[in-house]
């Protein structure tokens, strides 16, 4: 969330280190822990990666911050700016498009009153379109935080948004 306090450098280092501990002997190199570490750091920071989090991962893995930053920018699930407390990723690729994904996007825009990638004023939600999420049999669909919500209709997606805390 945009205005939630971020963890301190120390908290980040300790948090990432704790979560990485059981993984260290599973890989022959430390660098292989980069993506797991970024997932952990992002979870600690409310869904995005401030510069301090990237620095903490780099320090923990003994990598150059620039190379970790390069990894972050390559992947769609990592974010460099604050996101809503709830994140909606709406699949708009062809199979979902054929089954009304654009109408789902329109309903979300209408319900939240902000544009794609923006965070609602209360910090509650942000949404983006997304590439195929591998759920074309239940199209249209979206990923709500870590969970798939399937067989959506404009009405059901409005209902889902109203019920979010």
């Amino acid at each position: 969330m945009a205005d939630a306090p971020l963890p301190s450098r120390e908290e980040l280092l300790v948090g990432v280190r704790e979560r990485l501990a059981p993984l260290r002997d599973r890989y022959p190199t430390t660098e292989a822990l980069t993506i797991p570490a970024l997932h952990f750091a992002q979870a600690l920071c409310g869904g995005w990666l401030p510069e301090a989090a990237i620095d903490a991962v780099a320090e923990e893995l003994q990598l150059a911050p620039a190379s970790v930053y390069g990894v972050v920018t390559f992947y769609d699930l990592f974010h460099l700016s604050p996101v809503g407390r709830h994140r909606l990723r709406v699949c708009t690729n062809l199979p979902c498009m054929l089954r009304g994904a654009d109408e789902i996007m329109a309903a979300i825009r209408d319900e939240l009153g902000v544009g794609e990638g923006e965070v609602t004023a209360d910090g509650r939600c942000s949404y983006t379109h997304f590439e195929c999420l591998g759920s074309c049999d239940t199209a249209p669909m979206m990923m709500l935080d870590q969970e798939y919500r399937e067989n959506l209709t404009p009405d059901s997606v409005r209902r889902i948004l109203k019920e979010l805390d």
């Binding site: 062809l94 591998g134 049999d137």
Partner: peptide, 11 residues
Amino acid sequence: DESEPGTFKDR
């Protein structure tokens, strides 16, 4: 890494 649009069998 099943990501080819239209594919959901491995899941």
